[in-house]
Amino acid sequence: MAQSQLQQMIAVPGQLLGPSNKYVAGPGTHIHESNLYASLLGTVAVSQPPSSTSSKPTTTAGLAKRLHRIQAVLQSPSPTDKSSNGATTLPTISVAPPSGGAVGGSNEKREVLPEVHDVVLCRVTRIAPKQATVAILVVGDAVLEAEWQGVVRVQDVRATEKDRVRIYESFRPGDIVRAQVISLGDQANYYLSTASNELGVIMATSEAGNTMYPVSWKEYKDPETGLSESRKVAKPM
């Protein structure tokens, strides 16, 4: 029906996509006077929520995963929903910009910005006793065109024994670090955190200049000299 037509459609900014009580606004759209409009140039994509039909049994049956940390509520349900999960059954409508290959740009032209909760890859540029300065290179799967500066403060390096953390035992300039954005930060820096097992240094070079391999949660080892250096090591995935 109308959805299949929408999926073939090209949207230009300001184009009406549908009423906001039938769709959830995805990326590239905005809501104006309870209608959804495109805000980017691109193709329209309508995605049904995952397992919208089977969502009810799974949420009631089976043990839910125990909450072990405080998480922000991502999507507040719309005020009009009558059933408990009425908001989640609505399809999401989004506008994806055209992939750059056709227009001459070799890679994707779309700019992305680091947002709070994003996992980013970055290179350590500078270390100081209180913080490590990094250059954010990758957000999620998208390679950034511009380099954004970020900071890992000493209290954000790991979750435990925060008072014993030393920056120079956690990072060295040149390391590649997987981190999570915790704040947009101040004028210059995004604030990042590596306080999780999966976050930390993923690539490091030794003082001799060799690529090292991780041997424990706080050690990297040089395969040629056999010396080990301390880092905040990310758990290999």
Binding site: V12, P13, G14, G28, H32, Y37, S39, L40, L41, E111
Partner: peptide, 10 residues
């Protein structure tokens, strides 16, 4: 619009 900056309208 070509640059992919969000606009309410053209």
């Amino acid at each position: 619009a070509d640059a992919g900056i969000d606009c309410v309208d053209t």
